[in-house]
Amino acid sequence: MSEIEVVVGRIGRAHGIRGDVFIDVRTDEPGRRFVEGATLWLGEKRRPLKLTSVRWNKGKLVVSFADVPDRTAVEALNGEFLYDLVPEAELPSEPEEYFDRQLVGLTVRDHTGAERGAVAEVLHLPAQDVLRIDVAGEDRLVPFVAALVPTVDIDGGYLQLADVEGLLEDVE
C-alpha cells in the first residue's frame, strides 16, 4: 500500500528557551499526527524530526523535537511546513472532504463561470475553514462552506463560487 505526503502543520514562534515551538496546525487530526515519538518530515528536503514532547498551551499546540536542542535552533525553523505520510486507505473518502494540497492552486470561478483567481491557502480557523483566494494580487477570504462554494471539481482543477455579492470584490 502506498503513502501520500500531507501537510500537518507549520512551525511558528519559539516558546521558552528549551526548544519548544508553537505549531500552526494544518490537519483535522492533530491528536493522531502529533504524538510523542512520532516522526514528521520538515520542509522541502523532508528532514525527519522526531517529536519528543507534545502539549497544548492556551489552545495552541506546543512541541519539541529531538536534535533541535534550544530556542536558537528552533527559531531557524520558523515558517517551515511539517509533513506526515498517510496510507492511501486513510485518504478522504467522503465527497466533500479534501486535503489542503488538493485545494491550493485550484482556479476560482465566479457564479458565471469566469476565472477570477486561484486558491492560495486554506486557513483552519476555529469556526470553520476559510479559503485565501488570490484575485489579481489581492487576497480575498471566503468561508469554505457549501452555500458559498457549491462546486469543487478537483479533476477539472477549479472551484466555483455562489452568486453572493462581495465575495471577490468590495461592495460600496
Results as ranks from 00 to 15, higher is better:
Lys60Cys: 00
Val152Trp: 09
Ser53Arg: 10
Arg109His: 09
Arg10Gly: 12
Asp24His: 14
Thr112Asn: 12
Ile23Glu: 06
Glu75Leu: 08
Ala120Thr: 04
Arg109Gln: 14
His111Phe: 14
Glu96Met: 03
Phe65Cys: 07
Glu29Asp: 09
Leu168Met: 05
Ser93His: 13
Ser64Leu: 00
Asp100Thr: 03
Val68Gly: 02
Ser64Asn: 14
Trp56Phe: 04
Asp153Tyr: 13
Val135Glu: 07
Arg32Gly: 12
Asp24Phe: 04
Thr27Gln: 03
His124Thr: 10
Asp20Gln: 15
Gly156Tyr: 06
Leu168Pro: 04
Gln160Pro: 03
Trp56Met: 07
Gly9Pro: 06
Val7Thr: 14
Val130Pro: 00
Gln160Asn: 07
Gly19His: 09
Thr52Val: 07
Gly166Cys: 12
Leu49Asp: 04
Arg33Glu: 07
Leu77Arg: 10
Thr27Gly: 01
Asp110Cys: 04
Ala147Asp: 15
Glu80Thr: 02
Gly12Ile: 04
Thr72Ser: 12
Gly16Met: 03
Val152Glu: 11
Phe81His: 09
Tyr158Asn: 11
Arg33Ser: 02
Thr107Met: 13
Pro143Gln: 10
Arg18Met: 11
Gly157Thr: 08
Arg140Leu: 01
Asn57Gln: 14
Arg32Cys: 00
Val171Gln: 15
Ala14Met: 01
Arg101Val: 10
Asp28Tyr: 01
Gly16Thr: 07
Val8Glu: 01
Glu36Phe: 03
Glu36Ala: 15
Pro150Thr: 09
Val152Thr: 10
Val68Phe: 00
Phe34Gln: 04
Asn78Met: 12
Val164Asn: 09
Tyr98Leu: 02
Thr52Asn: 11
Glu138Pro: 00
Glu80Trp: 01
Ser2Pro: 08
Val8Met: 05
Val135Tyr: 07
Leu141Trp: 07
Glu29Phe: 02
Gly113Ile: 00
Gly137Asn: 11
Pro126Cys: 11
Asp155Leu: 10
Arg71Ile: 01
Gly156Ala: 15
Val149Gln: 10
Val135Leu: 06
Ala38Thr: 02
Leu123Glu: 15
Val130Phe: 09
Asp84Ile: 00
Ala114Met: 11
Leu77Trp: 08
Pro87Tyr: 09
Phe22Cys: 03
Ser93Phe: 03
Gly166Asn: 12
Arg140Gln: 06
Arg33Gly: 02
Leu40Thr: 04
